[in-house]
Amino acid sequence: MTVIVKKTTQLIAGMVFLYGIYVIIHGHLTPGGGFAGGVVMAGSFILLILAFGSDFMHLTKEESGSTLYENLAILVVVFLSVSGLLYGARIFFLNWLPKGTAGELVSAGMLPLYNIFVGIEVASSILTIFLALVIFKEETLE
């Protein structure tokens, strides 16, 4: 790609990433949540890969890293849901943290935690899918 595209992408990609984080963190107050924010975060990485070509980063290392984050995030989600069994009424997926007042940033108990980790999981899985396709294309071209 040309220099203009590269510079514009460098300026925009960080903002898209920050917007994804905003959508995830405010998921229990405004439209959005873990799924929407995760997809937006993955979109910022895909923008970088498309603009800079495949030799911009060491893609294979990136792929193993994103796979690791994906598996860790789903593990944390399972632990959070099992933690309801250890506490209080012993129900799977129990929301045992204090609720707070609806409409504030720190409220709704466990829901922001679920949002954050599901967001990480969705973002890293979509990034892994895209990286796998790009690496496959690079390997078969050689």
Binding site: G27, H28, L29, T30, P31, G32, G33, E70, N71, I74, V77, V78, S81, F92, F93, N95, K99, G100, T101, A102, G103, S107, A108, G109, M110, L111, Y114, N115, V118, E121, V122, S125, I129
Partner: peptide
């Protein structure tokens, strides 16, 4: 649930099993 966004409340509290299954499907894919 204490959540102002009702969709998030349904996804992660009332329908938590669905979401866990969805995340598992994503990892499997």
């Amino acid at each position: 649930t204490g959540s102002a966004n009702l969709v998030t409340g349904v996804v992660f509290d009332f329908r938590g099993y669905d979401t866990l299954g969805e995340a598992t499907v994503l990892v499997t894919a």
